[in-house]
Design a protein around this nucleic acid. Structure first.
Length: 618
RNA sequence: GCCGAGAUAGCACAGUGGUAGUGCAGCCGAUUCGUAAUCGGCAGGUCGUGGGUUCGAAUCCCAUUCUCGGCUCCA
């Protein structure tokens, strides 16, 4: 294609950059390339275009900061999935007000519409340039670059080390916003200096930016910590300690409902349900190896009659002890032990987050002891079981990861191979998409992790299925085979919801506090229009309560509109309204929390309908 | 843990050296009402905790606990 024609196409298409055989280049590179070569256009709204756009915005950010705070030195400033950031080292500590000033300065620089000018220079020259500017972080980066030549970008006199590509001009930035300031270690390593990070985002249009900011607002409204306060679900108390959860009546009701469901399904799936203690002698953790490889997550031991005891960070050794309490025959396998086991793990104070990351939590843990030839089938069933449980709670899309053998490992290569194959086969048989995390398995065996994405777009690991070649050896776990000899069983650890705390947190955000009927702490509320109908309303209430449905009554001296508002804010799924008409005819009027009028009916009809819905878990 | 911000009534927040405030929730009273807020009154706080500066501290300083944002994205 002739150059001129291409130029026109680029102008028409609003392309920001070009793709030359897989290399992204500035539009200005066009004049130097072979007209015969195949060129792709990078244009909005593609991901690549947005990345370039945001990256350029981060350069403008750096420029603005430099103008306002001349002693600022710059580290890295990349585009991210949600926007961009720049890490900066400077004497002034940034405040939210500074962000407004910086935004203003950025707008001025954008208004100037300066071109981004790409320059190639020898590494030595670049080192000299950034050294003279005192840009020690850029110098450090440069020193690690192997190439003899590097590129820098200049815009209105501000020079930054950068591979590019960039927008042709700053004026093309139409919508951006600085969002927050945070600390971040240089190169993410806590041994390094902490820099100030400015987060921002940018979009091609103001409308898109607004939509994104609205989305962030919606995310805040969905925050499980906020909803938990509004709905009185749980709390964390300073006097009790951080990362320790107090389950309030409403939250506890939901938890109990989840637990009941869990128990029922596990019994149906041939698990034996156990209870084990919360502490154990230090020796146990020595045998299990946790003291060697898990110590930093364990609390200090406590002394009981001169013997050290440790709060349990895991349930596995207890289950193994139960297994070993009697001789096991191959006829008994597979043995499936399950427990809602409460464990305590040390988490650094800065990473604690509501229910999502806590220090004491209850795992829906289980350990399966099986023979080699049972492994495939066990894993397949397990995956089925996991997906069934997750989908019952309304989660239908997951990120599945298969983690394979790391460099440091125990167990035979042969066993690793078999187990990894079994995991892989199970996922593929179910036709599920998955990614392989090479070398990310635990040292004791390969695993499948299933992650649920929450509304804050964080991935939370819930389910995990791990094969373990370590503990059976360490604890000398055996079974008597058909041949009368001792054999080593294969052990599978698994948790479906992960922890009840985190799972509950994800559920709250998933449903925005409006739980499905079967989980709702209050399933129905009876509302009276006037005190004249109290007697009938009480009878209706008692009738529903007798049927085992979680019902409340509000016969206060308030207007019906007020009562409906209150019930709706509590996100109670069904509201039974009783006025004179109902009282006289012995019927009820039903309303949903969404505001739908669900009709006029007998109490028996209502109970039957609710029971069916609760049973179906819809 | 580290950087930064914060902690005031049950909840949401205002108050920046001189008598602790507003709204909602709560309690009492009036109203007896038909699908998201009826009206009036009352009560509620040693301002996270400990120490200091000051005639005087919610406010300034130090310590401490807890909470929040972030600490993977590689010129």
């Amino acid at each position: 294609m002739p150059l001129a024609e291409l130029q026109k196409l680029i102008t028409d298409s609003k392309a920001l950059a070009i793709n030359l055989e897989g290399n992204l280049l500035d539009l200005s590179a066009l004049k130097d390339i072979n007209p015969e070569s195949t060129i792709g256009l990078i244009q909005p709204p593609s991901k690549e275009a947005l990345e370039i756009y945001r990256h350029s915005t981060s350069h403008v950010l750096a420029h603005a900061v430099k103008e306002l705070f001349p002693d600022a030195r710059f580290a890295i400033g990349p585009a991210t999935e949600e926007g961009f950031y720049y890490d900066i080292d400077m004497s002034h500590t940034l405040t939210p007000e500074d962000l407004l000033e910086i935004e203003k300065k950025m707008s001025q620089l954008i208004k100037k519409n300066s071109p981004f000018i790409r320059k190639t220079m020898g590494k030595g020259d670049a080192l000299e340039l950034f050294n003279s500017k005192g840009e020690s972080y850029k110098v450090e980066i440069l020193q690690e670059i192997q190439d003899a030549e590097v590129t820098v970008y200049e815009e209105d006199g501000f020079v930054d080390l950068c591979r590019g590509p960039h927008l042709p001009r700053t004026g093309m930035i139409k919508a951006f916003k600085l969002l927050s300031i945070a600390g971040a270690y240089w190169r993410g390593d806590e041994k390094n200096k902490m820099l100030q990070r400015i987060y921002g985002t940018a979009f091609f249009t103001k409308d898109e930016l607004k939509a994104h900011l609205d989305f962030l607002e919606e995310i805040k409204k969905r925050d499980h910590r906020r909803l938990a306060k509004e709905l009185d679900l749980f709390s964390i108390n300073e006097d009790i300690g951080s990362g320790l959860i107090l389950w309030h009546p409403a939250g506890a009701t939901i938890r109990r409902t989840i637990e009941d469901f869990w128990r029922q399904e596990h019994e149906r799936a041939n698990y034996s349900i156990l209870y084990t203690p919360h502490i154990a002698r230090l020796n146990l953790w020595q045998t299990s190896g946790h003291l060697d490889f898990y110590r930093e997550n364990m609390y200090s031991p406590m002394d009981i009659d001169n013997v050290s005891y440790e709060l349990k960070p895991m349930n596995c050794p207890f289950h193994i002890s139960i297994y070993k309490s009697s001789l096991k025959s191959y006829r008994q396998l597979p043995i499936r032990y399950a427990e809602l086991g409460t464990v305590y793990r040390y988490e650094r104070s800065g990473v604690l987050h509501g229910l999502m990351r806590v220090r004491g939590f209850t795992q829906d843990d289980a350990h399966i002891f099986c023979s080699e030839d049972q492994l495939d089938n066990e894993i397949l069933n397990l995956l089925d079981f996991t997906l069934f449980i997750l989908s019952t709670f309304g989660f239908s899309s997951y990120d599945i990861y298969l983690s394979t053998r790391p460099e440091k490992y125990v167990g035979s290569l042969d066993n690793w191979e078999k187990a990894t194959e079994a995991l892989k086969k199970a996922i593929e048989l179910k036709g599920l998409p998955y990614k392989i995390d090479p070398g990310e398995g635990v040292f004791y065996g390969p695993k499948i992790d299933i992650k649920i994405k929450d509304s804050l777009n964080r991935s939370w690991q819930c389910s995990t299925i791990q094969v373990d070649f370590n503990l059976p050896d360490r604890f000398d776990v055996t079974y008597r085979g058909k041949d009368g000899k001792e054999h080593r069983p294969i052990m599978i650890h698994r948790a479906l919801m992960g922890s009840l705390e985190r799972f509950f947190g994800v559920l709250i955000e998933h449903y925005k506090g409006a739980f499905p009927l079967w989980l709702s702490p209050i399933q129905v509320i009876v509302l009276t229009i006037s005190e004249k109908v109290s007697d009938f309303a009480k009878a209706v209430y008692a009738n529903i309560r007798q049927s085992g449905i979680r019902v409340e009554i509000n016969e206060e001296n308030e207007k019906i509109g007020f009562k409906i508002r209150e019930a709706t804010l509590k996100k109670i799924p069904y509201q039974v309204i009783i006025g004179e008409k109902e009282s006289l005819e012995g019927k009820i009027t039903l309303r949903s929390r969404k505001g739908d009028n669900l009709g006029y009916m007998n109490v028996d009809e209502l109970i039957e309908m609710l029971k069916k819905q609760i049973n179906d878990k819809v």
